[in-house]
């Protein structure tokens, strides 16, 4: 495969996404916007100073489990469905180029763009942690880097999942409702359904939270927390969590690629 060609195709997919203003505006509001609003709210509530670790943990959770994934899903869905929705896919398929390649180049383009938003949102909380830790110690650089990496992992996973489901369904509305509905409502219910035991390990957010650098929010380790952000931490082996995450990336991707390759257009 020609590297220049792949780079060009990813560039073209990036172009389609970044020029779609509604998606960009919504993704910016869900990431940077909500992060800034949350920090303003929680700092105002606590006299404009909070432990740096808590601000960082809240910001990380917000971008890795709550609003960041919504931005990622939005971008991923748009990447998955835009060619079909605009009836342009058949023109791309008629070039003779591999349809699987057409699918595969959507993924890095969407992930790159989604990362811009969620990492910018994470940067807002990091900046707040540095600026408003009061008399307490500032944020630990190692934790900042680990938290940023975890946000990037969550973003990449959720974006890829959305690209796959979008390519599979061909419908933005179905994809958004299904993926966001699963990530918010269904995941929340499953998290508190303790009777399910280890079955809950299969839930993506629970597997992702296994690698979240922060401890559980709202515990005595994090005094003063608003306790508004549950981070879905359930004790589980790291290897299992990694396998679950890989499965959540691979299964929708394979299905999306298969549908892209076999779709009658």
């Amino acid at each position: 495969m020609n590297r220049t060609l792949v780079r060009q195709m990813i560039g073209a997919d990036l172009l389609k996404l970044r020029r779609h203003r509604p998606t960009m505006a919504a993704a910016a509001a869900l990431s940077v916007g909500t992060s800034a609003l949350y920090m303003l709210f929680i700092l105002a509530r606590h006299g404009w100073h909070l432990p740096a670790t808590q601000l960082l943990d809240d910001g990380t959770t917000l971008m890795g489990l709550y609003f960041g994934p919504m931005a990622a899903v939005l971008v991923g869905t748009q990447a998955g469905v835009t060619d079909l929705a605009n009836h342009v896919f058949r023109d791309l398929a008629a070039t003779g180029r591999s349809r699987v390649l057409l699918f595969l180049t959507r993924v890095p383009a969407a992930v790159l763009l989604a990362l811009l938003f969620t990492l910018a949102g994470f940067a807002v909380s990091t900046a707040a942690a540095y600026a408003f830790h009061g008399a307490g110690p500032g944020p630990d650089l190692g934790l900042v880097l680990r938290s940023g990496a975890w946000v990037a992992l969550a973003t990449a996973v959720l974006t890829t999942l959305a690209v796959g489901v979008g390519s599979l369904t061909g419908s933005a509305s179905i994809t958004l409702v299904a993926v966001i509905g699963w990530q918010t409502i269904v995941t929340g219910i499953l998290y508190i359904a303790g009777f399910l035991g280890n079955l809950r390990w299969a839930v993506l957010s629970i597997a992702l939270s296994r690698f979240l650098p922060a401890a559980q929010i709202g515990t005595r380790d994090h005094p003063g927390s608003s306790n508004a952000l549950v981070n879905y931490k359930v004790p589980m082996p790291a290897a299992v969590a990694a396998l679950v995450i890989v499965a959540w990336v691979l299964v929708p991707s394979v299905l999306g690629a298969w549908r892209t390759a076999h779709r009658d257009v």
Partner: peptide, 16 residues
Amino acid sequence: HPHLTGWENLRVVAAV
């Protein structure tokens, strides 16, 4: 793609 310019639309196909 209606949100892209004529040139950008051609670029999308040309990239492929």
